Simulated scan of single mutants.
Amino acid sequence: MSEQTVNNAATSSLPPNPRIQSWKNFYRKIKKNKAAMVGGFLIVFFIIVALIGPYFTPYQPNVQNVMNKLAGPSAEHWFGTDHHGRDIFSRIIHGMSITLYVGFFSVFIGATLGTLIGIISGYYGKRVDAIIMRCMDVLLAFPGILLALAIVSVLGASLNNVIIAVGIFSLPVFARIVRGSTLAVRKLEYIDAIKALGASDARIIFKHILPNVTSPLIVQATLSIATSILTASALSFLGLGAQPPTPEWGAMLSDGRNYMYDAPHVALFPGLAIVIVVLAFNLFGDGLRDALDPKMKN
């Protein structure tokens, strides 16, 4: 028997890599959900467009041509022009990077702070848990859009302040989810064994508890991106988010509401862009929830 044959036989007899096997199982589950696959492909497409799309737009987003204002969709202007004669298609492409930037970074802020707060609350419990959760209950008592509106009103109207506001508004949801998962994990026997061996709290939290709470965290983060995009667009629609002439979809929608009867395309296409992006994240988030739920059958 040749050496290569022996090596091949030895390789084939090795057990599969658990990480690779888990990724295969995850892909197999998510593949069964056609809606989630559509949402996932749309998200990848949007990210690619946000990264390279602005380099290939036919017009600059803020170049005005008042002689061609409120023109309908045509071969020259696919989505028509707005009240300043700016190309709507180019502005939507440039606005996609802004929309995704707000969605991802606001959720990153909320998820990071919420995870830290939730783990501390669930791990230490007692008075620490009571104080933290009552603070989270206060934030949850406010409707999300009103809380974000109040924060932006205090900080001032700008895109960065919208990110901070949306991040704070999403923080309690992540904190409660992580706290619940932490309470379940810390009662496991192997956590008690690790404590008995003298492991520090930081080691237990970041090496043993945090990896076990990532599944619900990922699902909630995906769904929260859709909510964050809607909230940021609503704030821009009210004039508290991105300021003119930034091609943000909510601000574009606000500009187009004054021309709903004469030129409905000015509001139609930014509105459709928001709907499609939010729908993509919701579809993919639902698929993730089914794929990462241990109770679901393979």
Results as ranks from 00 to 15, higher is better:
Gln4Phe: 13
Val6Gly: 01
Leu14Tyr: 04
Pro15Ile: 01
Pro15Thr: 07
Ser22Arg: 14
Lys24Ala: 13
Lys24Leu: 15
Ile30Cys: 09
Ala35Ser: 14
Met37Thr: 09
Phe41Cys: 15
Ile47Lys: 02
Ile48Asn: 08
Val49Gln: 09
Ala50Leu: 04
Ile52Phe: 15
Ile52Gly: 07
Phe56Ala: 09
Phe56Arg: 04
Gln60Thr: 13
Val63Asn: 10
Gln64Phe: 01
Gln64Trp: 00
Asn65Tyr: 08
Gly72Thr: 12
Ser74Ala: 10
His83Ala: 13
His84Asn: 12
His84Gln: 10
Gly85Met: 03
Arg86Met: 04
Phe89Asp: 12
Ile92Gly: 11
His94Ala: 11
Gly95Gln: 08
Ile98Phe: 13
Thr99Asp: 07
Phe105Pro: 03
Gly110Glu: 08
Gly110Lys: 05
Gly114His: 05
Ile117Cys: 11
Gly125Ala: 09
Met133Ser: 14
Cys135Glu: 00
Met136Arg: 01
Pro143Gln: 03
Ala148Tyr: 06
Val152Met: 06
Leu159Lys: 07
Ala165Gln: 08
Ala165Thr: 08
Val166Pro: 09
Phe169Ser: 08
Ser170Leu: 00
Leu171Pro: 03
Phe174Gly: 08
Phe174Asn: 06
Arg176Tyr: 00
Val178Pro: 05
Ser181Arg: 11
Ser181Thr: 02
Ala184Glu: 15
Lys187Gly: 05
Lys195Tyr: 09
Lys195Gly: 13
Leu197Trp: 02
Gly198Arg: 12
Ala202Ser: 13
Ile205Lys: 12
Lys207Ser: 15
Leu210Lys: 02
Pro211Asn: 05
Val213Pro: 06
Ser215Ile: 07
Pro216Val: 11
Thr222Val: 04
Ser228Leu: 03
Ser228Gly: 14
Ile229Ser: 05
Thr231Glu: 02
Ser236Ala: 14
Gly239Met: 10
Ala242Gly: 12
Gln243Phe: 08
Pro245Thr: 11
Ser254Arg: 01
Asp255Lys: 01
Asn258Cys: 00
Met260Arg: 04
Tyr261Asn: 04
Tyr261Leu: 07
Ala263Phe: 10
Pro264His: 02
His265Val: 07
Phe269Ile: 04
Gly271Phe: 02
Ala273Met: 12
Val275Thr: 13
Ile276Glu: 03
Val277Pro: 11
Ala280Thr: 09
Gly287His: 12
Leu288Pro: 06
Asp293His: 08
Asp293Leu: 10
